[in-house]
Design a protein around this nucleic acid. Structure first.
Lengths: 335, 335
DNA sequence: TTGTAGGCGTTATCAA
DNA sequence: TTGATAACGCCTACAA
């Protein structure tokens, strides 16, 4: 068992060592850390002092085995390279940290099967899950939720705590904005088919277009990537639309590049709106887009999870994060 | 202990259940999974079948307590929102996954103190660490390495396994390229002071400039952010340089924006080179930059770590990932 | 090839 | 307020 390279790892002190030195039982040492209130204050301080001297720290694994709580949260995302997720992950990790929890990260590459096996493997180690834009089936998710607390981000399943970046308002505003500018034929370039955000945005475009009395043309779903956007450019041109709303900024960005290859300029020839505001004003021309709050969503999700962990009977919660239109430079009156 | 909400969590089967049903000892069940070769093949299959029926999976926590191996790797990054890191993290998680390991993610916000406490907390749960662009002191890192296997990314400490994205070649090529274009006064906009990559790039700019017989002006270090780049624009203008190399693409990108605010255009008035190629050709104008291989670095780091875990006596390794200049549109002959 | 038995470090129950 | 003691689920000498 202790076959270490010489000089390495001088065997961390255990509760037994502390107990011996403090002249108390191991139970007392344990209580001095996990339930000090039942102890005489002076006992607590004495035990803790000795523990500090020894550099004793309760072994989380042993604690986990005994309590069934691991101090670990798992966060699963479809594509960490998508700029929408890093801020969300960062915020989630931060909140977990302040709650004394560590964060396990899983990247599924948009593959539902991989997501499912990943979640299955992790379910033995994680106290709870944040599933961001999960591509698993409803049945799979509910089955997981039966075994571990689950919080969903951008997936709307009744009965489960979830935080939704509700882009309906923002997208509606985008369509109205385009209509007001004089566009009468607006395309929507869809994102991942299984994505809740995509179906929501698609629906919102349709409705808003109807209400504004303009035509909405739906382009087939794509993965969210710059390349996919480029490839979609010809399809967009075929529609004859003078304006387009893209599933997200990454796709919109790719479309701009693709259109440029065809000699079509944005916004000169076609107006374009993105989603999520992950590019900020950092591209040229600055993209008109629908705001998003990925970081807030990540923080809220972890908060929900922590709360659910503390009180499993806490009421179901559905957190809605609003969005709005950010008008920059890619939307103008049609020539 | 088992105070669950009614109907939830039907107590996962344990090794004892399997043993009972299979009519063997718990030791045999254990061996059927962790050391099947010592068992009669038919025993292995029978035990595994019964285990499968029961849905038995070895409890990783119990295993960890017994073996001291947790099946967890920790990866610490200074800023997950920096586009340099997500691909690296994604690749690292992928390699860890194929090695049967899960990935703990820590984000330090460039704060050495936070990094240190984070690492200390995690050291009890993680089998090893990947420290990306660590801001800790050498002493702190070595102390950690005494307790757990550590692989460094973009930090060059002798005796520790490390993978370095060696941008020296690329940066040198960038300076030579600028000199050939006719620039005689080149500024380097530094990045985070504690960053190994930064000192390396700075040095490389100096040397290359010397050799090329052009002047190199060093601008003070900044954090790597779009905003910091914008703020640096006036400083850059003051130098009178006709070309600049920025610590990374994010800063370069900010500089472009900042210069634009001053009515200075890139590359019309000033040529600009970035680093890391995180923007690809996705900005306008497309940025001349030095390639990088963040994803490869992440994968290599985990591979090194896994190897070190399998054989602690394996030789120290220092993996160098080369870079090269990618000429796009932000570098031209001075007016 | 398989079983026995003890241990990994904590927590929790029950007494005292 | 504290102490024994038995779990928690698995691994691993050692013995058979």
């Amino acid at each position: 068992m202790s076959s270490r390279a010489p000089g390495a790892e001088p065997a961390a002190p255990t509760i037994t060592n502390v107990a011996a030195l403090a002249g108390v039982s191991r139970a007392t040492v344990s209580r001095a850390f996990s339930n000090p209130r039942v102890l005489r204050p002076e006992t607590v301080t004495r035990v803790r002092e000795i523990a500090a001297e020894l550099g004793y720290v309760p072994n989380p694994t042993a604690k986990a085995l005994s309590t069934g709580r691991h101090g670990l949260l798992a966060m699963i995302v479809p594509d960490i390279a998508n700029p929408f997720f890093p801020p969300m992950i960062g915020a989630a990790q931060g909140r977990a940290e302040t709650a004394g929890l560590a964060l396990l990260l899983g990247n599924t590459d948009e593959d539902p099967a991989r997501e499912h096996t990943m979640v299955s493997t992790l379910t033995a180690q994680a106290d709870g899950f944040v599933l961001a834009a999960s591509r698993m089936t409803e049945r799979q998710i509910r089955s997981l939720a039966d075994r571990r607390p689950v919080v969903l981000v951008n997936r709307d399943l009744s009965g489960l705590p979830r935080v939704l970046v509700d882009s309906a308002d923002g997208v509606r505003a985008a369509v109205e904005h385009l209509a007001e500018l004089g566009h009468t034929r607006i395309a929507y370039l869809a994102g991942p088919t299984r994505s809740w955000a995509n179906t929501q945005r698609k629906k919102s475009v349709k409705r808003a277009a109807e209400r504004a009395g303009v035509e909405a043309i739906m382009l087939p779903g794509r993965v969210s990537s710059y390349e996919a956007g480029m490839q979609a450019a010809p399809d967009l041109l075929e529609t004859g639309a003078t304006a387009a709303v893209a599933f997200d900024d990454v796709l919109a960005h790719g479309i701009m590049a693709g259109l440029a290859q065809h000699g079509i300029s944005v916004p000169g020839d076609i107006s374009l709106v993105g989603c999520d505001d992950v590019l900020k004003a950092q591209v040229y021309p600055p993209l008109t887009t629908v705001s998003s709050h990925a970081a807030d969503a990540g923080a809220a999700a972890v908060d929900l999870l922590v709360q659910h962990l503390a009180d499993p009977a806490s009421p179901e919660r559905r957190v809605l994060l609003g969005t709005s239109l950010i008008i920059r430079a890619t939307t103008v009156t049609p020539h």
